[in-house]
Lab assay of single mutants.
Amino acid sequence: NKFNKEMRNAYWEIALLPNLNNQQKRAFIRSLYDDPSQSANLLAEAKKLNDAQA
């Protein structure tokens, strides 16, 4: 399933972002599970926040 693969990839990328705190990571990951079709958008948002907090 395409969404499962995208979701799994996004999950690990988000989990490993160095500048997000655990609460932020959990919120993004919860959103991934709520709507796997938004994986790419959620990952992009997480990366933006990660960069902003660098």
Score class of each variant (00 low, 15 high):
residue 35 D to W: 09
residue 18 P to V: 11
residue 18 P to T: 10
residue 54 A to I: 09
residue 9 N to W: 10
residue 7 M to Q: 13
residue 42 L to Q: 04
residue 32 L to W: 03
residue 7 M to R: 02
residue 51 D to T: 07
residue 46 A to G: 02
residue 3 F to W: 08
residue 53 Q to P: 07
residue 3 F to M: 06
residue 14 I to Q: 00
residue 23 Q to D: 12
residue 12 W to S: 10
residue 8 R to F: 06
residue 43 L to T: 07
residue 24 Q to L: 07
residue 1 N to K: 04
residue 17 L to N: 02
residue 49 L to I: 11
residue 36 P to V: 08
residue 11 Y to I: 15
residue 21 N to V: 04
residue 9 N to D: 14
residue 6 E to Y: 04
residue 18 P to I: 05
residue 4 N to Y: 10
residue 14 I to V: 06
residue 26 R to H: 06
residue 12 W to Q: 15
residue 33 Y to T: 05
residue 19 N to E: 04
residue 23 Q to W: 14
residue 21 N to K: 06
residue 15 A to T: 15
residue 11 Y to E: 15
residue 17 L to H: 06
residue 54 A to C: 03
residue 13 E to H: 13
residue 40 A to G: 07
residue 3 F to D: 13
residue 44 A to S: 14
residue 54 A to N: 09
residue 45 E to Q: 11
residue 52 A to K: 10
residue 7 M to H: 05
residue 54 A to E: 11
residue 7 M to N: 04
residue 47 K to G: 05
residue 3 F to E: 06
residue 45 E to L: 14
residue 36 P to W: 12
residue 26 R to Y: 08
residue 14 I to T: 01
residue 8 R to P: 02
residue 16 L to M: 15
residue 46 A to Y: 03
residue 38 Q to E: 12
residue 33 Y to C: 03
residue 13 E to K: 14
residue 30 R to C: 03
residue 1 N to S: 03
residue 11 Y to Q: 14
residue 1 N to R: 02
residue 54 A to T: 14
residue 13 E to G: 08
residue 48 K to I: 15
residue 22 N to A: 13
residue 28 F to G: 00
residue 27 A to W: 15
residue 5 K to G: 05
residue 30 R to I: 08
residue 29 I to N: 02
residue 18 P to Q: 11
residue 19 N to S: 10
residue 24 Q to A: 07
residue 8 R to T: 11
residue 19 N to T: 05
residue 16 L to H: 12
residue 49 L to M: 13
residue 3 F to Q: 07
residue 2 K to G: 13
residue 45 E to H: 08
residue 36 P to F: 10
residue 8 R to H: 11
residue 35 D to E: 12
residue 28 F to L: 10
residue 11 Y to R: 14
residue 39 S to F: 10
residue 51 D to C: 04
residue 13 E to T: 06
residue 11 Y to G: 06
residue 24 Q to P: 00
residue 40 A to H: 10
residue 29 I to T: 06
residue 9 N to P: 04
residue 4 N to K: 06
residue 32 L to K: 00
residue 31 S to R: 14
residue 30 R to L: 09
residue 9 N to T: 14
residue 13 E to C: 05
residue 24 Q to G: 01
residue 30 R to D: 05
residue 17 L to A: 06
residue 17 L to P: 00
residue 27 A to K: 07
residue 14 I to F: 03
residue 46 A to C: 04
residue 4 N to M: 05
residue 20 L to P: 00
residue 53 Q to N: 09
residue 34 D to Q: 08
residue 15 A to N: 13
residue 5 K to E: 15
residue 22 N to F: 15
residue 36 P to H: 04
residue 38 Q to V: 06
residue 18 P to H: 09
residue 1 N to W: 01
residue 3 F to N: 13
residue 8 R to L: 11
residue 25 K to Q: 02
residue 30 R to E: 06
residue 16 L to Q: 15
residue 17 L to R: 01
residue 41 N to D: 08
residue 51 D to H: 08
residue 35 D to M: 11
residue 12 W to N: 15
residue 23 Q to P: 08
residue 12 W to M: 14
residue 12 W to E: 09
residue 11 Y to K: 14
residue 30 R to Y: 12
residue 6 E to N: 05
residue 37 S to M: 14
residue 25 K to P: 00
residue 27 A to L: 04
residue 42 L to K: 05
residue 17 L to I: 01
residue 2 K to H: 10
residue 25 K to Y: 04
residue 21 N to H: 07
residue 15 A to V: 11
residue 45 E to V: 10
residue 29 I to H: 11
residue 15 A to E: 06
residue 18 P to D: 11
residue 17 L to D: 01
residue 27 A to F: 13
residue 26 R to P: 01
residue 24 Q to R: 03
residue 3 F to R: 01
residue 43 L to G: 02
residue 52 A to E: 10
residue 45 E to T: 05
residue 45 E to K: 11
residue 42 L to E: 01
residue 17 L to V: 00
residue 49 L to C: 02
residue 48 K to D: 07
residue 26 R to F: 08
residue 35 D to H: 14
residue 22 N to M: 03
residue 44 A to L: 15
residue 45 E to I: 15
residue 47 K to L: 09
residue 24 Q to E: 10
residue 23 Q to A: 13
residue 22 N to Y: 14
residue 50 N to V: 01
residue 1 N to G: 05
residue 33 Y to Q: 04
residue 29 I to V: 15
residue 32 L to A: 02
residue 39 S to A: 13
residue 15 A to L: 12
residue 41 N to Y: 12
residue 53 Q to L: 13
residue 39 S to Y: 11
residue 45 E to S: 10
residue 34 D to E: 11
residue 38 Q to A: 10
residue 14 I to G: 00
residue 31 S to F: 14
residue 38 Q to N: 12
residue 8 R to Q: 14
residue 52 A to Q: 15
residue 54 A to W: 12
residue 42 L to A: 07
residue 41 N to F: 09
residue 8 R to Y: 09
residue 16 L to R: 15
residue 34 D to N: 09
residue 20 L to Q: 00
residue 13 E to Q: 03
residue 2 K to W: 07
residue 50 N to S: 12
residue 23 Q to H: 11
residue 9 N to C: 02
residue 46 A to R: 00
